[in-house]
């Protein structure tokens, strides 16, 4: 059985020499030669990556493998013999440090402007992308949620909590809900904190919750400062993605009046229903002249 792959490789080398002497002179053998042994990568032929390489970058399919993996003549000539020094001459970008192979084409675009020095730079592109596969964005997993959750287990757990954004839908393959992680984060780097896609946490939130963006006649100080003061976006055991449930959340900062400063038992209207928001619903700001205490 061991002779079969070696024979195939030898055949591949022969084919390479027969079909592309000039390429072989440069150490390049061509994609067909590669596929002679790596038949499992046949799908790459029809994957978006291969198509766009040819049309957008002028890299013909025949040269596509070695564009990323480097010249393959010595590797092919080793005929599968791992002891042959030439065998290891091939580059595997997925195992190499850094991301130079990918950056040779994806040197820059808007989404990757802040890649250098970003939190994910050290992970390498192949941690999240499988370049030989088809599929959207060449993701390594079936969905974006699965791809991100493979490292961010805490977020995966949060998505099962009582309140959450629609990131997860168990009825779908890959579990992807209506939202995606990239609706809020740019995994390729960002000028903002937490790889936020917007200019800041709040600006990211406003991209959907636009009604909260405008300055209001009566403001609630922390609101325009940081939504995360009161909300935790990946999931919460409290309603409305709150970091703590009212009335205690509100009482963490408010004890001016008598009704704010009581322990407020379970039989109190200050604690049931929407608690403090039963009477102060406009916690995100009010535009009503009678709204200074956010009741209108």
């Amino acid at each position: 059985m061991r002779t079969a792959p070696i024979a195939l490789m030898a055949l591949a080398v022969l084919v390479a020499f027969a079909t592309g002497a000039s390429a072989a002179d440069d150490g390049f053998v061509g994609a067909e030669t590669c596929l002679g042994c790596h038949a499992q990568q046949q799908a790459f032929k029809t994957a978006p990556h291969a198509k766009s390489m040819a049309a957008a970058k002028g890299v013909a399919f025949e040269k596509s493998c070695e564009t990323c993996h480097g010249a393959g003549a010595k590797h092919a000539a080793a005929g599968g013999d791992k002891n042959d020094p030439g065998f290891a001459s091939i580059v595997n970008p997925a195992k190499a440090k850094g991301d130079e192979a990918c950056k040779s084409c994806h040197a820059g675009d808007k989404a990757r402007m802040f890649w250098s020095g970003s939190a994910h730079e050290g992970q390498g592109c192949a941690s999240c992308h499988s370049v030989h596969k088809g599929g959207k964005k060449l993701l390594a997993k079936e969905s974006q949620l699965e791809t991100c959750a493979s490292c961010h287990g805490d977020v995966k757990s949060s998505l099962l909590k009582r309140s959450k954004h629609p990131l997860r839908d168990s009825s779908r393959h890959g579990g992807q809900g209506k939202m995606a992680c990239t609706d809020c984060h740019n995994p390729h780097g960002s000028q903002a904190e937490k790889l936020m896609a917007g200019k800041s946490v709040n600006d990211t939130c406003y991209s959907c919750h636009n009604e909260k963006k405008s300055p209001m006649l009566w403001e609630h100080g922390p609101v325009k400062e940081d939504c995360l003061t009161c909300h935790t976006p990946h999931g919460s055991s409290n309603d409305k993605l709150l970091v703590m449930r009212p009335p205690r959340l509100c009482q963490s900062c408010h004890m001016q009046g008598r009704h704010q400063s009581g322990t407020l038992g379970a039989n109190s209207v200050y604690a049931v229903g929407k608690a403090c928001l039963n009477c102060h619903p406009m916690v995100h700001g009010s535009n009503h002249p009678s709204g200074p205490v956010l009741q209108r």
Partner: peptide, 28 residues
């Protein structure tokens, strides 16, 4: 009667740039 969220308009202009530096560096 309560006031509902007001109609608003926003304009944003953003520029970004990145350049290679010596020592395998980059400034963005």
């Amino acid at each position: 009667r309560m006031a509902l969220p007001p109609t608003s308009r926003s304009h944003d202009v953003a520029a970004s740039g990145s350049v290679e530096l010596p020592l395998n560096g980059r400034a963005t």
